[in-house]
Structure formats: C-alpha cells, structure tokens
C-alpha cells in the first residue's frame, strides 16, 4: 500500500529574487532552496495516512535538478520510507510536461493515495496535481483542509468562498493540500540519522520540455511612497474618501 507525496524544490520564500541575465529565469546565486511550503502539508498528510493504515510505505517523488536530493532527504528525515528523484536536465518544465513525467513514475507505484501541495511557491500554476490525477484516471480533490478515510472512501473539507465544501471520493485518489490540513512535523535528529540509511532512487530525464514557454520575467513594480492626508479628526473624511475612491478597499 503506497502513499505517494510529490514535492518541488523552490527558492526560500524569504529569498531575495533576482532575475537572471536571460530575463526569463531567476539567478540562483546566494538563494536558499526549500521544499515548497504547501508540500510540507502533503508530506505530513501522507505520513499520517500511513500511520493510520498501519501498513504501507510513504514514497516521496521529486522532479527537479540534481540539488533536489536535499529536499528529498528532508522528506526521508520527516519519516518517508524512500524517495524517487526524477533528475531533470532542464531548469524549467511546464505543468503539462511535469505532470506527464510524474504520472508515469507514480503510476508504476500503484498508489493508494497521492498528495501534492495545492500549488508551488515559485510558479504557482496549481495544475500539476490535478493533471497527474487526470493522466492516472484517478479522482482528485484540491485544496483540502481536512481528510478522513473510512475503508475505500475519503471525505475532505475544502475551503470555498464564504464557506466549506464537504466532498467524498473513492480511493485511490489524488489530493492537493491547503494550509491548515495539519501541522507538519519537524525532522527530529533521529529521523535525520535514519534518513541517511534510506534510499533515493535516481532516474534521469533529459527529454526537452514542451508546451508553455516562459517568455520573460519582470520584477513587481516598486512600492509607492505613502501619503499623509492630514492630522487628527479633521483628516478622517478625506482618509475615508481616499480609501473608498482611490484605494477602493472600503
């Protein structure tokens, strides 16, 4: 019984991003990389499901550069049983191309449940999990905040605008994790030591990415300086007017 979790190596969310000379990728110099934060909820979910089932393996899968072994090692330190590193010779791959490679690798594992973060912290397309499900012919539930499994049925809560949607699906199925699904555990020192003995299977991928191409990356516009509209009670009407008419926030 396999519980599969897919992770992506992304720049630390606190990293200062500089655009590289080619104008369409980021300069990795001095940037720390981490498993995408939503993926940590996915890892925890996979570990919890295995613990609840009392059997099976958690297998972490990553399509990414050679350096992504560090992120996979973190999954192993948190408790995953083994990992598969799909070493990508290409720095960027679009969601469809990524999903095609992942689906093939995951399909071979006959998973009971597959977990993704709801979106990656870098490109944030929110597509890969759903596309993998489609290619595997499995149901998918995205952005879940709770998950309960009874037999071959899973019940999940999804946050929707102004409320909660409760859905039920047969499993095997694919889930993408929203913040709040769980509290990801930290890798304990024993877990880190144990991870040294676990295996990361490596498969190389150098087929050219197809589909979407990034044409250019632009930094966000510089923030405008603030403005003081007056002082004391006299300034309130003008402040309200600006908030309503200019900023359009009230």
């Amino acid at each position: 019984m396999n519980f599969v979790v897919c992770i992506k190596r992304v720049p630390d969310t606190e990293a200062r991003i500089k655009i590289a000379a080619d104008g369409k990728s980021i300069d990795p110099t001095g940037v720390q990389f981490i498993p995408s934060p939503y993926d940590e909820f996915a890892i925890e979910a996979a570990l919890l499901q295995k613990e609840k089932a009392g059997a099976g393996e958690v297998i972490a899968v990553c399509l990414g550069p050679a350096e992504a072994s560090g992120e996979l090692r973190k999954c192993l330190a948190m408790g995953a049983d083994r990992a598969i590193h799909l070493k990508d010779a290409h720095a960027h791959r679009d969601p469809a191309s990524t999903a095609a490679i992942l689906a093939k690798a995951i399909g071979d594992l006959s998973p009971r449940m597959v977990f993704f973060g709801k979106s990656s912290a870098d490109h944030g397309n929110s597509q890969v999990g759903v596309q993998v499900a489609e290619r595997l012919g499995l149901p998918s539930v995205s952005e879940i905040v709770t998950l309960e499994v009874e037999g071959d049925t899973a019940k999940a809560h999804r946050e929707i605008e102004g409320g909660v949607e409760i859905v039920s699906t047969s499993i095997p199925a694919v889930f993408t994790a929203q913040k709040g699904l769980n509290k990801p555990r930290k890798a304990s020192l024993k877990g880190i030591m144990a991870a040294k003995k676990k295996t990361i299977e490596e498969l190389a991928y150098d087929e050219a990415p197809e589909g979407l191409e990034i044409v250019s990356l632009d930094p966000p516009p510089e923030r405008q300086a603030g403005r003081i509209v007056g002082e004391g009670a006299d300034a309130v009407p003008e402040l309200v007017r600006l908030l309503r008419e200019e900023a359009k926030v009230i």
């Binding site: 630390d12 969310t13 606190e14 990293a15 720390q32 072994s69 560090g70 090692r73 973190k74 330190a77 930290k186 890798a187 304990s188 020192l189 880190i192 030591m193 991870a195 040294k196």
Partner: peptide
C-alpha cells in the same frame, strides 16, 4: 521576517546534507 542565517562566505557548501537538515530543524523550532 524569517531568520535565514548569516553566511557571507558560503560556509553551507562545507556542510553535509545531514548537518544542514539538523540546523534547519532547530532553526525552525
């Protein structure tokens, strides 16, 4: 803002994966 360490001369390149993981767990804690 999140603390990301001080590493002006890339000392991290001299640390093993395991050493980096240990530091990262304790730093988050």
């Amino acid at each position: 803002a999140k603390f990301t360490g001080v590493d002006f001369l890339d000392m991290d390149s001299l640390l093993s994966e395991e050493e980096l993981l240990v530091r990262s767990s304790v730093r988050e804690f």
